[in-house]
Computed example of a mutant assay.
Amino acid sequence: MLRNALEPWHILVVVLVMVVLFGSKKLPDTARALGKSMRILKSEARAMKADGAGETAAPSGPAAPGSPADSRR
């Protein structure tokens, strides 16, 4: 059904619509901002993944009074 979902003329139509919407002078700035946003998103996702791997042994909530985890404080 969707074997040829993205053909070259689809990409051409998307580029033309972007040029009409943003104008040719704003496109480089828009692309630069999009690239910067993607880099930030990737780095934050990597940081969250690294934090998640390090926190698997730590308790996730407050310890109940009198529990062994409470005595660590």
Rank of each mutant, 00 (worst) to 15 (best):
V17K: 08
V17A: 12
V17Q: 05
M18L: 09
V19K: 03
V19E: 02
V20P: 03
V20G: 06
F22G: 01
G23A: 01
G23T: 00
S24A: 05
S24L: 04
S24R: 07
S24H: 06
S24I: 01
K25E: 03
K25H: 10
K26A: 00
K26L: 03
L27F: 01
L27N: 00
L27S: 02
P28I: 01
D29E: 13
D29N: 12
T30E: 13
T30S: 13
A31W: 02
A31G: 07
A31I: 07
A31Y: 04
R32V: 09
L34R: 15
L34D: 09
L34T: 14
L34S: 12
G35S: 05
G35I: 02
G35H: 04
G35P: 02
K36W: 09
K36Y: 08
S37P: 08
S37D: 14
S37R: 15
M38S: 15
R39D: 08
R39I: 09
I40K: 15
I40H: 13
L41P: 03
L41V: 14
L41Y: 07
K42S: 11
K42V: 11
K42F: 15
K42R: 14
S43A: 03
S43N: 06
S43E: 03
S43T: 11
E44Y: 03
E44R: 10
A45I: 13
A45M: 03
R46F: 14
A47C: 04
A47K: 07
A47I: 10
M48E: 14
M48H: 13
M48L: 08
K49I: 11
K49T: 10
K49C: 08
K49G: 11
A50Q: 13
A50T: 12
A50L: 10
D51C: 09
D51G: 05
D51Y: 14
D51T: 14
G52D: 02
G52R: 00
G52L: 03
A53D: 11
A53L: 04
A53F: 06
A53I: 10
G54T: 08
E55S: 12
E55K: 07
E55G: 12
E55H: 07
E55Y: 11
T56F: 06
A57E: 11
A58C: 12
A58F: 07
A58S: 10
A58G: 13
P59L: 05
P59M: 04
P59F: 09
S60A: 05
G61C: 05
G61I: 08
P62H: 04
P62I: 07
A63M: 01
A64L: 11
A64N: 04
A64D: 06
